[in-house]
Design a protein around this nucleic acid. Structure first.
Lengths: 122, 122
DNA sequence: AATAGTAGGTACCAATAAGGTACTAAGGAG
DNA sequence: CTCCTTAGTACCTTATTGGTACCTACTATT
């Protein structure tokens, strides 16, 4: 999951990045919270990032809370209500993730075609 | 590893992204190839992205080759020589990854401090 | 009144991904 | 002769992820 400081070296900021913000669903979760730009409940978040599992979403959100990227508010009701929101620190990732989303939208077809013609494990 | 198309939906470009460009070391590898902007041998690449293992680097590079993000040239010599280079398609990721590297450099201290005070699994 | 659905988890087990050696090839240096 | 080189591969162990089932207590349907 998140944050193994075994190799936080200056050599490569990306290695630092994967050590701090790791996990398959990390970027999709942060991106969804950023584009929402408001509080969002756990269930709504999960549906937006489908097919992430509850367990993974919980684990990642807790890690992001620890890093100060996400705020978590629990309402002691039944059934439970928990609201999440991107922090100011988390919002500083917006330009970067917007850029990544644009890149993906622009090159999705080409990438899919390449991997199909070169036959990859489906 | 790379490319499971089970859930390539339009809902979230980031979910598409993690399905195409997946793996812990994917971003560090692409970033290193992009900043190098020239051919680089397997060993040099591995040392630059330490502590990645040979196996992981090989696996990811093959996946990127399939996606058309990386060129691979084998020289039938002994000891073997294999050179890798980012493609034009791969270079289109440069602004995005530069932005991510800048973000990491700018917020590294804050993130590390947050995770230390909030005590995370080391 | 008994069941079904709700939302945010947790516990447990299976599947997958990643890491750690050791091994290979042909030649050159010591 | 032995060691060292490089880009892998094979084999095995560990870490991460996914797939159910279960819990809480209230509300709506049957």
């Amino acid at each position: 999951m998140a944050t193994i400081f075994t190799h936080l070296d200056d050599k490569c900021p990306m290695v630092d990045f994967v050590n701090l913000v790791s996990g398959k669903w990390a970027i999709p979760i942060l991106y969804r919270l950023i584009v929402t730009d408001d509080v969002i409940r756990f269930g709504a978040l999960q549906r937006a990032i489908a097919p992430i599992t509850q367990k993974e979403l919980t684990k990642q959100l807790r890690a992001f809370e620890t890093l100060g990227l996400v705020d978590r508010t629990v309402y002691p009701e039944m059934p439970p209500r928990v609201e999440y929101q991107i922090t100011e620190l988390g919002k500083t990732l917006k330009p970067t993730l917007d850029s990544l989303a644009d890149w993906m939208r622009e090159h999705r077809e080409q990438l899919m075609q390449a991997s199909e013609t070169n036959s990859i494990n489906l």
